[in-house]
Design a protein around this nucleic acid. Structure first.
Lengths: 322, 322
DNA sequence: CTGAAAGCGCTTACAG
DNA sequence: CTGAAAGCGCTTACAG
């Protein structure tokens, strides 16, 4: 370390001034001067090699293209940065398998999964390697880790209640990824509430939480014999797809078709979209997820927590009476 | 390295089988068996400490919330992953200053700037520290590094030509960030082309490449005495703001107001938006940026390159005759 | 083809 | 308060 040499002290002394050990004021001043002169930045590689922690948290977000996720990334980054930590992102550019291998090489202190899916053992394997994990946004039953999610069951209920109130009886649901807890819960809440009314027909189609998939599915649905008068989409992106598919098919929203989404991404509030949807507290979910993980790092033995955050119905212009 | 011990070989031998040195087939088999048994992943920290490279590339993307950028991140990640490298993101969660300090600690092999701005010395300083840099999307005059950008001057011209052809004469331009080359060039091309016509009034307002800023500015503009009949926005996000501000103000698009954007983000093709815009090859810009940087790593002494990629006018539904 | 040794840049006890 | 030493987990010459 040439900083040490130039300041005329030992390496360990430089380390102490940088990390806040006890150092004589004059010594500290001298070291800081040299540090400033070269704008010296200590190597993270060396630090994480020797230290107990790398200061890196892995974040698994597969589809960065869904406007939902940049918001989450940002919120997570903010919290991590406040704690002096960094984020390492895994997206769908690589397989989840590759991503987790990478995260282990990087020596992450923990990982946040936002895309957990039933029957996929990756999150379990991270735990097997002794790496703390938190499930954020999507959860898994009986998973041995901290979890945060929105109250998705209620989200489904709220959507159903709204549509029922408007008098809709021929209804379709555009479902999210099979295996995702959000899709299962939202579907469950929706169906449950629908059953409280008489004479309701429910058609379920698969949108896989993906714009293109939902667009095609809705286009086919609208071209069918008895198209529904209302649609509940398991997320906003699929609702946008539905809105656009309806526009392309010349189906008027909300006059001929009502559309309800789920998420309330900022885009949904735009005047040109004005999507009726159920808001989940995106940033809060992200924030709580990271905080749970950070607490876990300090207290490995505490019992796991499972937070469920409230949702809220947001009425806008894409729904109307049947 | 307990892999070495369990396989009964030296550390250096394990290293060779992992990195492809010459190893006897039987030895290799034995080592790989143990590696597989533990799903062993070599520490990146140790590797980058000893090796010449860290395999990390810094990517400075300030506003992840503009749908433009996730597309770029994804494209960059793809190219990097093909080369066995990783990306380290710097967003506006921290100051640029902090971000670059972090990047240096992490020992990045190079950095891609997508947000270069006149009179900001950060990119220069990276070069001063001996770290290769590429300017991607936004460029700087006489900057001593590789650069890629779209033909933004032509983009401005195409927008102007289209509006002029439609007969518009009272025109406004919603400008991007002062200091960004894209804003300067798009503005320049637009004005230049406007000057070829008679009796044109051009009002310029500042939108700072930001949704909220542009929304307010356009709202004020439309409330003014003689509002323009056409708008050129320096990017798509500001055009969305204009579309929404117009909707809120009850101004019909395109009947009373024509709107042209610039970028052609996927969103712009949505039926509910159908924005007339000038396409720049987003993914190609990202890809070329990373490739230039990767080549630079191997050939530090080659002369700098400056690529300018073609743009293309995309007519959709937000523009009409004056 | 393979092993022993040195060293990358730090931090962490341990003396003094 | 400060320094000398050991060691984190790798790779890279260097012998053999």
């Amino acid at each position: 370390m040439q900083i040490a040499r130039e300041a005329g002290v030992a390496q360990s002394t430089v380390s102490r001034v940088l990390n806040g050990g006890s150092v004589a004021p004059e010594t500290r001043r001298r070291v800081l001067e040299v540090v400033a002169k070269y704008d010296f930045q200590p190597s993270q590689a060396a630090r994480s090699l020797v230290g107990a922690r790398s200061g890196l948290i892995g974040v698994v977000i597969r589809d960065l293209t869904n406007p939902f996720y940049p918001v989450m990334v940002k919120a997570m980054e903010r919290v991590l940065h406040e704690h002096g930590m960094r984020l390492s992102l895994v997206t769908d550019v690589m397989t989840a398998e590759e991503g987790l291998a990478l995260l282990r090489r990087e020596g992450v202190d923990g990982v946040v999964f936002t895309s957990a899916v039933q029957d996929e053992p990756l999150a379990h394997r991270m735990i097997g390697h002794g790496i703390p994990v938190v499930l954020c946004h999507r959860t898994l039953d009986d998973f041995p880790a901290d979890q945060v999610e929105a109250d998705n069951d209620t989200a489904g209920e709220l959507a159903a209640a709204h549509l029922l109130d408007l008098g809709h009886r021929r209804i379709a649901m555009v479902c999210g990824l099979a295996g995702a807890s959000t899709a299962r819960q939202r579907g469950h809440g929706f169906r449950k509430r629908l059953r409280t009314a008489e004479g309701v027909t429910l058609t379920e189609i698969d949108g896989a939480y993906d714009y293109a998939t939902a667009y095609e599915a809705v286009t086919a649905l609208l071209a069918g014999a008895e198209p529904p008068t209302a649609l509940f989409c398991h997320n906003d992106v699929m609702a946008y797809a539905a809105l656009n598919a309806a526009a392309a098919a010349g189906v008027a929203v909300p006059d001929e078709l009502s559309v309800v989404g789920c998420d309330d991404v900022p885009l949904s509030a735009w005047e040109r979209i004005a999507l009726t949807t159920v808001r989940q507290p995106l940033e809060r979910i992200a924030q709580v997820g990271v905080e749970l993980l950070l607490e876990r790092l300090d207290h490995p033995e505490r019992p796991h927590r499972h937070e469920v955050l409230p949702v809220e119905f947001v009425g806008r212009s894409t729904t109307g009476p049947a």
